[in-house]
Simulated assay, not measured.
Amino acid sequence: MRDATSSEVHAGVAAADAALARIFEIGRSRDGVVTPDLIATGTGFVEKAVQQAGIREWLEIVWRFDDATHQHCLLVAGLAAGFARSLGLRSADCQRLTQAAVLHDVGKARIPSHILNKPGPLSPEERAIMNQHPVHGHRMLLGTGFCEEMLAVVRSHHECLDGSGYPDGLKSAQILDLVRLVSICDIYGALIERRPYKTPLSAERAYAILEGMIGKLDGDLVRAFRPFAALADTAQPEAAA
């Protein structure tokens, strides 16, 4: 049973990554259109794999990918799929949340590769360029059939409830629930993911940072995320150092 489940998770990761690769290819070439059908195919596999194998095995497989941007998108998509199920959301809402998570960083297709793939901290100038990815992503998807909520996730996943986020400095009620959910998964994913230049945090330490961001993040959702965060802990020895 374990082998069959692992095979299904590998298939889910591969299918989702193939959809991501096509999306980023379209974004980089500026030819073609990213359509809802394209993203729906990949995210269906994400939801099924996370449901059958659990978030921990999904993360272990995703972390074997070399492309950091793809790895992050898949990681956040898995977290979103699992978090949605833990909240008891309807199937349609789970699908929408997972799709939004896969798409959230699509604008990075328009970021120069030497900045996107830099193996270390960005300079202030490079950070300013990187911070334009939500605007690029929103522009890529506008008018291509995605609903307003999905477009809002792509543009606003770095916004904060206190108005300190970017690119629009939105506050409180201006930030949709779907955006708030993806933002939590995005930040948590960045804290626990593995990079050559950073030590991944344990689930406990990563959640403590999320908890410290209440006020910027939705407090009720952060607290609801706590039991799910524990499930996503892959217990890396270096993470506890």
Rank of each mutant, 00 (worst) to 15 (best):
S7M: 12
D218K: 07
L59T: 09
A68N: 10
M150S: 10
F83K: 01
E159V: 04
P200S: 09
E193S: 15
R155N: 06
L217D: 03
V13Y: 06
M150K: 01
G189L: 08
S91Y: 05
V179I: 10
I55E: 00
P237I: 07
A241G: 09
K216E: 11
E149P: 00
E159L: 02
D168V: 05
A49I: 03
G42D: 04
S7G: 12
G120V: 09
A101D: 03
D93P: 00
G42C: 08
A15L: 10
P36L: 03
D162H: 11
L38H: 10
I214P: 00
A18E: 12
V102M: 15
K48Y: 07
I214N: 09
L181C: 14
G32K: 02
V46P: 11
G54V: 04
A4G: 06
V102E: 03
D233F: 01
M130R: 12
K216A: 14
A128R: 15
R2K: 13
P121Y: 12
Y188W: 04
E149R: 00
H72A: 02
E25L: 10
G42H: 09
A18Q: 11
S113D: 15
S86W: 01
T98Q: 02
V76C: 05
R205C: 12
R194C: 13
L38G: 05
D67A: 09
